Amino acid sequence: MLSPVDRVVRRAVMVPPRPTPVLVGIDGRAGAGKTTLAGLVAKRLHAQVVHLDELYDGWSGGAAGNRLLVKRVLRPLARGEHAAYPVFDWETGEYASRRRVEPAVYVVVEGVFSTIRAARDLLDVRVWLEVPAPLRRERALARDGDGFAPHWDAWARQEDELFGPDRPWEHAHEVIEG
């Protein structure tokens, strides 16, 4: 049985070679392990990683983050161009810097809402992480502590609102549980 990393890497390397990057999206609810999986996959593929946490415009910015991802990252990369996006500073509550992403053989995008709506059609590999809510909460609060705790319920409602009609797990190439 292949490990989750092996499953995602296998999918990515099966995409026929081309002049534009192979775009891999890793999605799931908060605390599912997206960042960890993305880091391991990126290491194996020698890929760049885009973290959606940098694109949200705060705790209610899931839909805005997805729109920014599509417009400023996925579309340019799919055309073989560099991407550039504003980076949100969670301390100041505003976009404070910019990040540039060069076209590479592989680019991994990770974060809640990374495979929904218009992003879906631009991604070559879509991964959904399915983890029980109590474990996700425990992980997220251990990682982000008091910064996330007061926002957990509102963020979960936002996940329900955006994931509900879209159902990204039904469009994933790989669904990874646990």
Rank of each mutant, 00 (worst) to 15 (best):
R67A: 06
I116S: 02
H46P: 09
H51G: 05
R136V: 07
G111M: 01
G33V: 05
G147A: 14
L52A: 04
W90C: 09
L2T: 14
A118G: 13
E159Y: 14
L123N: 04
L68D: 00
Y85T: 01
H82E: 15
P165A: 13
E130L: 05
P165H: 11
F163Q: 10
E91I: 05
L162P: 05
H173L: 10
F113E: 01
A84F: 09
Y106M: 06
V13S: 02
H46L: 13
E94C: 14
V175G: 03
A83E: 02
V109R: 03
G178P: 12
L141M: 14
L69P: 01
A63D: 11
D27G: 04
P17D: 11
P76W: 04
R126Y: 04
S97Q: 07
Y56M: 00
E138D: 15
V13Q: 04
A32S: 07
A38F: 05
A156K: 14
L40Y: 14
A12V: 01
A118Q: 11
W152P: 06
L45S: 11
R79K: 13
L162C: 03
G39H: 12
G65K: 00
A142I: 04
G62N: 08
V5S: 08
Y85C: 01
A140H: 06
A142D: 13
A42N: 02
V70Q: 04
G178T: 09
E170D: 15
L2Q: 14
V131R: 11
A149T: 10
I116Q: 03
E170N: 08
L129I: 07
D166G: 07
V50I: 07
A154T: 11
Y106L: 04
P86Q: 15
V112G: 05
D27N: 12
D6R: 13
V105Q: 15
G25F: 01
E91H: 09
A42C: 00
Q48D: 10
A38I: 10
L40R: 15
V50L: 00
A140E: 14
S60I: 09
Y95W: 08
W128G: 05
S97F: 07
E159V: 05
K71L: 02
G65M: 04
R11D: 13
V49H: 01
R120Y: 11
D166R: 07
I176E: 07
E102C: 10
R10M: 12
D144I: 06
T92I: 05
H82K: 14
H173D: 15
H151M: 12
S3L: 06
S60T: 14
A142C: 07
E159P: 11
T115Q: 09
R139M: 05
D153V: 15
L45V: 10
R117L: 12
A154G: 09
P17L: 10
Y95T: 02
R100P: 00
